[in-house]
Write a protein that binds this DNA or RNA. Structure first.
Lengths: 192, 192
DNA sequence: GTCTATACAAAGATAGAC
DNA sequence: GTCTATCTTTGTATAGAC
């Protein structure tokens, strides 16, 4: 289990980012959660916190992307419903105090260089997620523009739901939005 | 200009929250921006950072609420379009590095007590904003359930757009979502 | 009520033994 | 490659003069 230390540190960093954000996360947390020693940080991540956070964000972005790739085929409405079902557990974590690690690195450390790099990672991730969704919606028969717009809207709703549900402490905001969104895509705004 | 120091400190804290979040914000920033002295913090805010941040979040929440109250009357579609026009400049600030101060306090400091208090403030604010919007949509003829669902969805989209636009560094994600949302509310999902 | 000075804790970053 | 120990900086919090 030689090379596992690095992996464990990245995983611990993802968790720390989700709970406390970049500025609120400390090496102490990561070290305690990963069981690594203090000096291990600069051994595995010579550029320090910026590098560790960047790799953690990229890791989390890829994991989410993989989940989105598992969305089943079907009609546009079915894809939308499957999307909400897929992300519900993640938003539930947000309601319990965990959040989106990629959104977290959007705030950054205060260093201009590091922040620009982190925002770029986050932006790339969001685009990749939306692209995955757009593929499914295109396959479901939507024209490319509509698929892209709807996919971007769903990702935006997901990020907003993280924020609202974390504040509320429960899934209620997410459920209300999911109902409204599926209803709108289904073509009836007033129905319940 | 005796009592103005407190006000300036709160304003400076709102700005600091928007740029760095709770954990990333320091008294040094607030002091420099407000021109206050170090001891002034615990003179005006005996409970320290938690109290200062809480008051800043409440202040920002009320300001936004006041802006939402200025939304003009009209059809549901017109209200939605007016909403996007109203928040566009705010999201543009997000794209430039500033964000939503209320969303920022959602992450918190790490202290369990303070975090619960801050999340409660944020949740109350989001609900208040959605209620304002829902009033306008009800006045526009939507039934209460549909108005509430659409209002919550628009606030969620707003928060998501803050995150996506901050990452992207421009307004493109917001504009795409605004187009899709107005199109969906207008009843045509595929049109451009 | 406002300011200066400082105590105390925690953060990130390094050096060097093993 | 892994660990211990420590340096430096920065942040919150407080005491007390004016």
């Amino acid at each position: 289990m030689a090379g596992d230390t690095r992996e464990r540190m990245i995983e611990a960093t993802v968790t720390a980012l989700q709970h406390r954000g970049v500025a609120g996360m400390s090496f102490t947390d990561v070290l305690a959660a990963s069981g690594a020693a203090r000096g291990a940080i600069y051994h595995h991540f010579p550029a320090g916190k910026a590098q560790l956070v960047a790799e953690a964000a990229e890791r989390n972005a890829r994991d989410v992307s993989a989940h989105l790739a598992a969305l089943p085929a079907g009609s546009p409405l079915e894809v939308v419903e499957a999307f909400f079902d897929l992300v519900r557990p993640v938003v539930a974590d947000s309601a319990a105090g965990s959040g989106c690690a990629v959104a977290a690195v959007t705030i950054g450390t205060g260093s201009a260089d590091d922040d620009a790099s982190l925002r770029r990672i986050a932006s790339t991730a969001f685009t990749a997620w939306a692209d995955r969704l757009a593929e499914r919606l295109s396959a479901a028969g939507l024209d490319p523009d509509a698929a892209g717009g709807l996919a971007a809207t769903l990702i935006t709703l997901l990020q907003g739901a993280h924020v609202l549900c974390r504040a509320a402490g429960d899934l209620a905001p997410f459920e209300q939005v999911a109902r409204t969104a599926t209803s709108l895509v289904g073509g009836r705004a007033e129905e319940h």
